[in-house]
């Protein structure tokens, strides 16, 4: 057991967990998109879970911090909120906001984060920039929506975890980065019995070809 203080509240928790996990377990919400419960290599890519820790000069992503005795952390300082709001606005500046037609509506992490950070879903000041492809239908069982995807990478990680190798990967670079299925058309893929990626996706970027299309 280690003892730490978050937002002036003392927590006694098991060793080995990340600060983000501990906070979430104890009802202290920190926005996050790429965090996977129990993983040892945090992807730390969404850059939302920042906290301030005493002794560190800048906010750090709480998913990369293992809890230690004596950590004093704050989850709601102005510099934390500034980074979180910017990260969120950036994500929304490349996001197709069309909740009514999205399967994730009402259970979407982005909606939750927007409410929590008190930021609108449509950012002012940043020009909206969408990818040309609205749906990638190349996969035999899955459809992928690049303009919904936040590139958290959880689908790739869960796939690798389930099947020993990932049938999904990141492709391209920079703003063009997408999740791709290598152009896989093999009907023997395990996907039709798995769909773990769909369940883990924090938004609604992957759908099953079988489910009714919401357009």
């Amino acid at each position: 057991m280690v003892t730490l203080i978050v937002n002036k509240q003392e927590l006694q928790v098991d060793e080995g967990k990340t600060l983000l996990q501990v906070c979430l377990d104890n009802g202290i919400y920190i926005p996050n998109l790429c965090h996977i419960h129990g993983t040892d290599n945090p992807s730390a890519s969404c850059r939302l879970c920042f906290v301030e820790i005493e002794g560190e000069d800048k906010p750090i992503p709480s998913c990369t911090v293992k809890v230690k005795d004596g950590i004093i952390a704050k989850t709601d300082t102005p510099s934390v909120r500034r980074l979180q709001r910017t990260a969120f606005k950036l994500l929304m500046s490349v996001h197709r906001v069309d909740c009514g037609h999205c399967p994730a509506n009402k259970k979407c992490e982005l909606q939750r984060i927007a409410k929590f950070l008190k930021v609108g879903l449509k950012p002012k000041y940043l020009e909206l920039r969408l990818k040309e492809t609205e749906v990638d239908e190349s996969h035999p069982f899955l459809d992928y929506y690049p303009n919904r995807c936040v590139l958290c990478g959880k689908c790739i990680a869960v796939c690798k975890d389930k099947h020993g190798r990932a049938f999904l990967t990141f492709a391209k670079r920079g703003l063009d980065t997408v999740v791709s299925s290598y152009g896989e058309t093999d009907a023997n893929l395990p996907c039709s019995k798995c769909f773990a990626c769909i369940r883990i996706c924090p938004v609604g970027a992957i759908t099953s070809k079988d489910s009714p299309r919401q357009t």
Binding site: S45, L48, L126, D176
Partner: peptide, 12 residues
């Protein structure tokens, strides 16, 4: 393309 700030921020 991995993290939000660099991927989208540098574009803006």
């Amino acid at each position: 393309g991995k993290c939000t700030f660099c991927r989208i921020g540098t574009h803006h």
